[in-house]
Design a protein around this nucleic acid. Structure first.
Lengths: 327, 327
DNA sequence: ACAAAAAGTGGGATCGATTTCAATTGATAA
DNA sequence: TTATCAATTGAAATCGATCCCACTTTTTGT
């Protein structure tokens, strides 16, 4: 494969000049054209490794999410990638499966790649022990954040969103409401807090279950909840993955929504609007989350000293059939 | 950030020796331990750019898919990534949106990154003009392949799968069957061919529509099909994304399946089993596709000379409620 | 027309690792 | 004890680009 020296020779200039053409340095139009012709003729492709080594900047950001199969994260990733690309940056995408070991491994990988910055949706465990300074690059958290560690972050107003679901169910006439929350993310905790707050405000108990963030775990948990002597009349479910489990549990128990159990949850995944008269959900501004995270990262790179900030975005309640009045 | 020289100094050895520790070269246990201690103390992270430049191998493969939001591709990606990781390789994931310009751009990117190989789901347009030799790295195609260009590939037996859907619908008593296929991929073409073949074998006409591979395009197309004077009694739909559009069209037209229109398609996306009594689909062996592609790529790297082969995997018909007998 | 400033170009060091080759050490056998 | 050989180690070249500095050419101002 042709290298810069070959191009230089072919164009009758020095390697320095070829490099200047590559980097839009000061080159006369005549020479630039000669060099570009040579590049085309030799089918030259700059070697990124060499470029990054010498220039000491990679123009690459890391995006570490817990599960790319979760439509929430695919949508956010998509937005991050588009935005990154528009700013001349590449993205390295990583899946952690909510596994702290994998998180540590990928953070180390990011260091080895000398990424410019990282956008990260960490588990509670990792978020507690994270030292962004030691990492050597700025980190913007998404979806999840910690109250203690101060980092840039883009999150949903989870308490309010969860409370909105509860208020909606209450307004529809439901009282006996139970919650299902993920146990690995701060998000699950926040949503639980909002759930409890709103229920207490209404003077109601707030029974809740915490489960591993998988369809199977949720299905199992909901199945037992539904089999209990006094089963709840409505369910608030903490995210799209768990909601899928809840729906499966209801179906396999032969229960209908909202007739037998009302449903309300998070994430406007494509299928939620197709089930019966639709599932009531909080729609997250996924595109905005991705774009905001990328924007924050760029600002941080611009000014490493500015104080960390947290962008809190609001969800949007989509009231659909699964939470229709008890009738 | 510490470099190899610093580690060498701290451990009282030469940089060469540190490098040998890094690469599992011949080093005495005593020295190895000293070096490893020094690395830990300095929090050393090898610089991948430098390593790749010098060693001339990146241990990185490219994975170019058309849409990471399509569950088929997310699932395949996941399998590829896991398999790659198990073989000590990194993956660069790219989205093309079925856009040939983006495909060209990402192929160029792969060259600049000097990837070891690429797994690629190309559009028909690109597949026709692809010259794997000129690219400089081996390419394994997934999901799609060309009859002309000879490359390693992993594909579904699309004709047979489509025919299986038709046969199933025929067995259930349906005759008036129409098809909806994507117009950018060879896959759509193959499935169409299988559809036509099976219909002709039954002595039936095979009306078909080709649409852009988006939910909206499919919804629009199906909506007009359903509004036509003699609307089909059953629909064969070429993939999960289009199926989503078809379902939306049916719902908005107030039609039920299978009572008004029977449905059968591809991709066992999570939601397909939740809709009514489930959607009849061909389940693709997504994990196997990803693993097979990665395996083929490794074999090809092992032996660049061996003749190209195509792995054809079989889909599995999941007969569900949407194709129940006409009653 | 001449000095000063600006623009364009080339030479050579450099980024941080690996790799080749030579040197040294230690172990083994005669 | 000494020659031989394998196992370790170090010195220096190298990967392919960028970047600093010096030099030449052109432009500008007076």
């Amino acid at each position: 494969m042709a290298k810069i020296k070959d191009v230089a020779a072919a164009a009758g200039v020095s390697p320095s000049t070829v490099s200047r053409v590559l980097c839009n340095g000061p080159v006369s139009d005549k020479v630039r054209k000669r060099v570009e012709d040579a590049m085309r003729k030799l089918d030259y492709r700059p070697n990124m490794a060499a470029r990054r080594l010498r220039s000491q900047h990679t123009d690459t950001i890391g995006l570490i999410v817990s599960d790319i199969r979760n439509p929430f994260f695919t949508a956010v990733s998509r937005a991050v990638e588009d935005e990154a690309y528009r700013n001349g940056m590449r993205v390295i995408l990583c899946n952690t499966d909510e596994n702290p070991d994998k998180e540590a491994m990928y953070l180390r990988l990011m260091q080895e790649e000398r990424v410019t910055g990282v956008i990260f949706a960490p588990t509670r465990q990792t978020v507690a022990s994270l030292d962004p300074v030691a990492l050597g690059f700025p980190v913007v958290m998404i979806d999840r954040a910690s109250r203690d560690v101060i980092t840039d972050a883009v999150v949903l107003d989870n308490r309010r969103a969860a409370a909105a679901l509860v208020d909606h169910l209450l307004a529809q006439g439901y009282r006996d409401i139970a919650g299902v929350f993920g146990n690995t993310s701060s998000t699950g905790m926040e949503r639980h807090a909002g759930f409890v707050e709103a229920m207490q405000l209404a003077g109601l108990p707030a029974p809740a279950q915490f489960v591993a963030p998988s369809v199977e775990a949720a299905e199992q948990a909901v199945r037992t909840m539904l089999a209990a002597p006094q089963r709840p009349r409505a369910l608030v479910v903490s995210n799209g993955v768990l909601m899928l489990g809840a729906v499966r549990a209801l179906k396999s128990a032969g229960l209908q929504w909202p007739q037998d159990v009302a449903l309300a949850g998070f994430d406007n995944d494509v299928w939620t609007e197709l089930l019966g008269d639709g599932l009531t959900v909080i729609e997250q501004p996924v595109g905005e989350i991705g774009r905001a995270a990328m924007a924050m990262l760029l600002e941080r790179l611009d000014d490493p000293e500015r104080s960390p900030r947290i962008v809190v975005l609001q969800g949007k309640l989509l009231a659909r059939g699964s939470s229709a009045p008890a009738g």
